[in-house]
């Protein structure tokens, strides 16, 4: 399978990257690890005439317990014992992305911005042409939830839920300079599977920042999928919390990916539990309340009813395992 021709740019600074992005507005894609973009390009999904490769932009590198550069490779995160010790839930998620071969190339930024997925979208041009194109590429209708307004493609990144649960922030660069926003806010774009983030055209994710409050939390990420490697999440549940010695939970965050068009957090539900003891009954109530809100659609391998039912189970288990685990 060959790629259609494009022009390849390899800027060597963040400023140059942002400038280039301005010049090529709307006609380019950023290329990070390529493990998501290049299969999509091979399937002729939303091709652009320019690619801006980010592998030579030094500002996107660097890894510490405070900051993860967007171009840091997942395989390097996976092999970082300090990171695993500090953020066990994030480490779970990193080591469960796709396969070791994908993680060798895949990056933090690439996983945060992984294209949303759907049976009707992640198909070859031939396949899509044979059925009729969809809203997300080349067409004007959604085949999953038949209508013409909204795309229901599933957010399938593994890193976002645990990072959101840690209150991570994302550093963004654009023509107007750099800004930092909560990672959750980056995804707060109206819930459409096509317009997935609040990033302005040309803006680029530079790094993820982990607040000092994220240290010392107990955290866990639980991923539902058919096979223990390869598969994208059919559901991904991340929890992070701080428990007092007496068992009261001081802080609790919960985020879910793989179920809807964007990773969601449930602060109203979790903050109501803060300061109290997480009895089995409260955990069960929380799990069920979250399960009530999550509405998967039939565009992945496992049936939506099942995925929805698993939300409560996975939330409960993630909480139990996080609590039983070591603090970061």
């Amino acid at each position: 399978m060959h790629l259609d021709p494009f022009e390849l740019h390899r800027p060597t600074s963040l400023d140059a990257t942002v400038r280039l992005a301005g010049d090529l507005a709307g006609r380019f894609d950023y290329l990070a690890g390529g493990t998501d973009l290049l299969p999509n390009y091979k399937m002729h999904l939303n091709l652009r005439p320019h690619l801006i490769a980010l592998d030579r932009v030094p500002e996107l590198r660097g890894r510490s317990l405070e900051r993860l550069g967007a171009m840091e490779r997942l395989a390097d995160l996976e092999r970082d014992p300090a990171l695993r010790a500090a953020f066990p839930g994030l480490a779970d998620a990193v080591s469960e992305v796709a396969t070791p071969l994908v993680r060798a190339s895949g990056t933090v930024g690439g996983n945060l911005l992984v294209e949303t997925r759907c049976f009707f979208f992640n198909q070859s041009y031939f396949w899509r042409a044979s059925l009729g194109f969809c809203l997300k590429a080349d067409g004007d209708r959604c085949h999953v939830v038949p209508q013409k307004e909204r795309c229901y493609a599933t957010f399938s990144g593994d890193l976002a839920p645990p990072l959101i649960a840690l209150d991570a922030e994302v550093e963004i660069a654009g023509a107007d300079g750099r800004r930092r926003i909560p990672l959750a806010a980056m995804y707060d774009a109206g819930g459409d599977g096509i317009r997935r983030t609040t990033l302005a055209p040309g803006e680029i994710v530079v790094a993820v920042h982990l607040p000092s409050a994220a240290r010392g939390l107990r955290s866990r990420y639980k991923k539902l999928r058919v096979r223990p490697s390869y598969d994208f999440p059919e559901l991904g549940v991340a929890v992070a919390g701080r428990w007092e010695d007496g068992g009261r939970v001081e802080r609790l965050r919960l985020a879910i990916g793989g179920a809807e068009t964007y990773p969601r957090r449930f602060d109203d539900l979790t903050s109501a539990l803060e300061g109290g003891t997480l009895s089995d009954e409260r955990v069960r109530a929380l799990a069920e309340a979250v399960g009530e809100r999550v509405r998967p659609v039939h565009n992945t391998f496992l049936l939506p009813d099942y995925r929805r039912r698993m939300v409560a189970v996975y939330v409960r288990r993630a909480l139990a395992e996080a609590r039983a685990g070591r603090a970061g």
Binding site: F119, N122, Q123, S124, W127, S130, L131, V226, R227, P228, S229, Y230, D231, F232, F301
Partner: peptide, 18 residues
């Protein structure tokens, strides 16, 4: 009549860990 999973990603061959 339509085949929905003509790929190694969605046709679930067991992996080494299964």
């Amino acid at each position: 009549a339509r085949l929905f999973n003509p790929s190694f990603l969605e046709y679930k061959i067991p992996t080494a860990d299964q």
